[in-house]
């Protein structure tokens, strides 16, 4: 969605490069930075309790356009934000006259962040007598991940093993008979596999004969189907609204879930329209029950239930043939 501003803005691109990353003054290996993914991973096994990080940036603005344009007092700022902690750190960058790039350092204080911050760069200038107007922003922000060890943008759904019966997590006790649990309340959805449920982890690692593989695929499809259903419900329940009551497309995993599932839940509607429809049915309650079979269909499609079931049926048929021969 492009926003139109009542003053001239930059057409040219703003390029942001991360030059160096330090925690507690010690430079980190560049392998924590991924330029294609625009991500920085700050978690260090060797130094889990760091306090004070910094990220050195170099920014290229469309200098020719700036020179000819109606902007004055151009400044370039780096903005580090994290939604969950409502942190917002702004740092001015300095222009290097020789290379005509802007550079500077943004502090990352461990105490101010939870897990994932976003780093973006804006050009700010005086336009038409009004100072401090944003005239351009980098197309894609960098992700500063404080908990990851590898710089990847797209996060994966977490899958963890836990002992539901005798483990340290009290709240899992009531579920001691369940082989798995899907949790969608946290920052990332988590699938907990009950390690006290005998055989579940071995089954999922299933390799070897086709029957074992088929069983493993079938169980995985079932877990995944439940996970997708739960994630969809959770995403729809959490929508933020605009002033006119229209739901906003969420960010993070919720966006991915809605984008991939809505076309199957409400076929033929544009994403925004489908979101309004789903939100209305969920909030008002009418037609929500009718939607369940659609959600179920979309989830089992994501979980590849049909394919896994076919594989299982074939494997069983074949094993029986083998037995009779």
């Amino acid at each position: 969605m492009n926003t139109l501003f009542p003053y001239p803005t930059l057409v040219g691109e703003i390029e942001v490069r991360v030059k160096q990353v330090r925690i507690d003054g010690k430079p980190l290996s560049l392998s924590v930075v991924s330029r294609p993914q625009r991500a920085v991973a700050l978690h260090q096994v060797e130094r889990p309790n760091w306090e004070d990080g910094s990220i050195d940036l170099e920014v290229t603005l469309p200098e020719l356009e700036l020179a000819d344009g109606p902007w004055s007092e151009v400044a370039c700022v780096a903005i580090l934000t994290e939604g969950s902690t409502n942190t917002r750190v702004v740092r001015r960058l300095q222009r290097d006259r020789l290379s005509s790039t802007w550079s500077g350092s943004v502090p990352v204080l461990r105490a101010m962040h939870r897990d994932r911050a976003t780093l973006n760069v804006s050009a700010v200038a005086t336009v038409g007598g009004v100072a401090g107007r944003t005239i351009g922003t980098a197309d894609e922000a960098w992700i500063i991940d404080l908990l990851a060890r590898t710089p990847v943008r797209q996060r994966e759904i977490e899958i963890a093993e836990a002992d539901f019966r005798d483990g340290p997590q009290e709240w899992l006790r009531p579920f001691k008979d369940a082989p798995w649990l899907v949790e969608t309340a946290g920052e990332m959805p988590t699938i907990l596999l009950n390690s006290s449920f005998e055989g579940i982890t071995q089954l999922l690692k299933g390799s070897g004969n086709p029957l074992e593989k088929a069983a493993s695929g079938l169980v995985a499809a079932q877990i995944a189907g439940e996970a997708w259903t739960a994630m969809f419900h959770s995403a729809v329940a959490d929508l933020e609204l605009d002033d006119d009551g229209a739901p906003l497309i969420p960010s993070g995993w919720r966006e991915s879930v809605l984008r991939t599932m809505l076309p199957d839940v409400l076929p033929g509607l544009a994403l925004a329209d489908a979101l309004i429809e789903v939100h209305n049915r969920h909030a008002a309650g009418y037609g929500w029950a009718e939607l369940q079979s659609q959600i179920h269909f979309a989830a089992s499609r994501r979980a590849q239930v049909p394919k896994n079931l076919t594989t299982a049926v074939r494997a069983i048929t074949r094993s029986q043939e083998g037995a009779t021969r």
Partner: peptide
């Protein structure tokens, strides 16, 4: 710690719906 491969592939957030 990312869990069994067979399950992980079914839960990827970055690929469009199959088929």
């Amino acid at each position: 710690v990312r869990g069994p491969e067979v399950l992980r592939t079914l839960l990827r957030l970055d690929i469009p719906a199959s088929g």
